[in-house]
Design a protein around this nucleic acid. Structure first.
Lengths: 182, 182
DNA sequence: ACCATAACTGTCCGATCGGTCAGTTCTGAC
DNA sequence: GTCAGAACTGACCGATCGGACAGTTATGGT
């Protein structure tokens, strides 16, 4: 058939993202993705140099968004820093739900992935959430928020409508950080 | 050599737990475990009926401990319920760190595992953390605590000594749940 | 109409995995 | 010492995986 290149690429990426999010990176074979996308495994490997490259391409948008957030809050301090970081982080997890689930499934794979520096960015996020503080209580609370938002965003339990979920996640996170609402 | 059965079994379980926690269930082969434990793959399969059974045996203690916790707080209400649940859950994650990491790595595997009912127990835990409330804000906050403690316990970053970590995890969790300290 | 090239595929390959099995080695009771 | 059975092993098997490659089909510019 030979459709336009970008169409098939997009279809493959979509299928890969969904399957990876459900069954994990290792739990999804190239054949699974190809079947779901409606092409042959060989065609998949024509568009993407390998399974790893496919994973990389899927995660880069989320990574860039996180990097942009960290860049945006880099010059803030105190209350503004924490508030902006929390809101930005929550929005990010809701926007990239499936990517988060994928990251969640194969966190160890990512740590030693050369093209992705998720761990580095996570450190920066942790730092901002702690308000640049090095005190153990603040660091622990920041870790808690990191995990809380991460998992709450990754879950697909319809615990609440997205708008309510977002608002409550932000409020809960700020409480965790002992941040009195302004 | 043919050492006593229990000794080799214990060695295999120990090796499996460590390797699973680091590389995940799928990321660890039976040969990896056997080499680490100092025996052959065939010997490993002599002691354990299969890879799944090995996983089950590793997670049962943690599962039982969680079930016991839920049983203990079943008759409590209000503040006592939430406090006991939080403290118990935090202690549990710190006691079973590696098991948590393992669970963390392969959460989807577990959901469809017949011998383990982790998801069912997680629901009970969520319910107790929410103080048996069905209101969305309380449910979201409970989800946040579930994830926060989960990840903070699973991480091996030495963010703080265990005693400080424990105390701060409990305090942070109670703040997340909007629980004014008694 | 023609053709260079992009898009695609069927088929094969080596590696790795979980698991089986017949056979060997060790141990403890007598 | 002997011997039954537990403990252990090397060799092998079928399945599955990621990937390579030669060959085929469709497309767009001329």
């Amino acid at each position: 058939m030979a459709r336009s290149a970008s169409a098939m690429r997009g279809q493959i990426l979509e299928s890969a993202l969904r399957l990876f999010a459900v069954h994990g990176f290792r739990g999804t074979s190239l054949q699974d993705i190809a079947s779901d996308a409606g092409c042959s495994k060989a065609s998949l490997l024509y568009h993407f140099a390998g399974k790893e490259k496919l994973l990389t391409e899927l995660l880069i948008p989320a990574q860039d968004a996180l990097a942009a957030l960290l860049d945006r809050v880099a010059e803030l301090k105190g209350d503004r820093l924490v508030e902006e970081t929390v809101v930005g982080y929550v929005d990010l997890t809701l926007r990239f739900r499936r990517e988060i689930r994928l990251l969640f499934e194969d966190i160890t794979e990512m740590s030693c992935h050369q093209d992705l520096n998720v761990m580095e960015l996570a450190d920066g996020l942790l730092d901002a959430l702690a308000g640049r503080s090095q005190h153990p209580p603040a660091r622990v609370a920041a870790w808690m928020v990191l995990g809380a938002v991460f998992i709450t965003g990754a879950t697909d339990d319809e615990v609440a409508p997205d708008e309510v979920l977002r608002a409550e996640m932000i409020r809960s996170a700020l409480r965790t950080l002992d941040h009195t609402p302004s």
